[in-house]
Amino acid sequence: MSGESEASTGTKIEPGRRYGFFTDTTLCIGCKACEVACKEWNLLPSDRASLSGMSYDNSRGLSATRWRHVAFVEKLDESGELPTAMPPFQSHWLMMSDVCKHCSNAPCLEACPTGAIFRTEFDTVVVQQDICNGCGYCVPACPFGVVDVDTDDGKAHKCTLCYDRLKGGFEPACSKACPTESIRFGELDELQRRATARVGELHAAGVADAYLYGTPGSPGATGGLERLNAFFLLTAEPEVYNLPCSPDRPANRVVPSLASGLAAVAALAAAAAALLGMRR
C-alpha cells in the first residue's frame, strides 16, 4: 500500500509493521493544532470550555473525547519565585502533546474482557466500538490515565493512532497537522533511531536534561511494559508532565493475587471440613 504518508513522511504504511509516534517536546510550541486536527478528523464532540487557570491548558487532560492534549508547564526558578531572566533554550516553557502510548504489552487490552480492545496490523491498540460494552475495566487498568468511558454513548474511547487513516495510507491527523514536527509518525525502529540521534544532538548542544520516555529500558517502559509505541523526548522529570516514571503492567498481579486468595480459601475450606466433620 502506498499513499499520502509515503510522500509526506517518507513512511510506507504496510500491515505487519510497527508504527508509532515520536513526540519531541523540545520542538512543541503549544499551538494545539494536534488537539484540533484530532477532534476534527475523529469527529469528537467539543468539550465544555472553561478557563482552568492552568497556564494555557484549558483542556486539562486526555479523555473519551480528547485524544491529544497539550500540557503547558511554566517553570519557576529554583527558589520557586517567578523567573526574571530568560534561559537560552525553551525559555521557561515546557510544552508537551500527550497521547495514548499504544503500549506493548497494553494494560487496557489485557484487561478488556470482550476483546473489543485489540492490537492492529500496525501494532497499535484500538477499541472496537461495535464490541465494547462499557464495562470500564480498561479505565483503571491504564497506567497513564488515557482510556476513558464516555457516559453519553457508553463505550470506551481513546486514540486509535488514526487506524482509518493508516488503512488508507495516510499519516495520522495530529502528526500531519503539527507545524514543527514535534509529533512524528513513522515506523517504530526508524523513530527510535531518530529519537536517539536527537537526544545526542541536544546533549551536544548543552541540553543535558533531554532523555527519552517510553523506549525500551527507559522511564515509562518499565514493569512489564516493554515499550511505548508513542514515546516522548522530555527535558524534565516525567512527573512534571503528569507521567509516571515507572509504570507497570497490572496483569503481573493476577497470578500472585489469585494464588494467595486460593490458598486462603483452601485453608479455610480445610478448617471448615474439620469443624463440620467433628460432629459426625
Binding site: 482552568s52 492552568m54 497556564s55 491548558d57 486539562r60 487532560g61 500540557a71 508547564v73 470500564g136 475495566y137 479505565v139 483503571p140 491504564c142 497506567p143 497513564f144 490515565g145 488515557v146 482510556v147 476513558d148 468511558v149 457516559t151 512527573e239 512534571v240 508532565y241 503528569n242 507521567l243 509516571p244
Partner: peptide
C-alpha cells in the same frame, strides 16, 4: 504534579 491534575482515571 501537573497542577494537581489526576494522572490516572478512576474506575467508572
Amino acid at each position: 504534579t501537573y497542577y494537581g491534575q489526576p494522572a490516572l482515571k478512576p474506575a467508572p
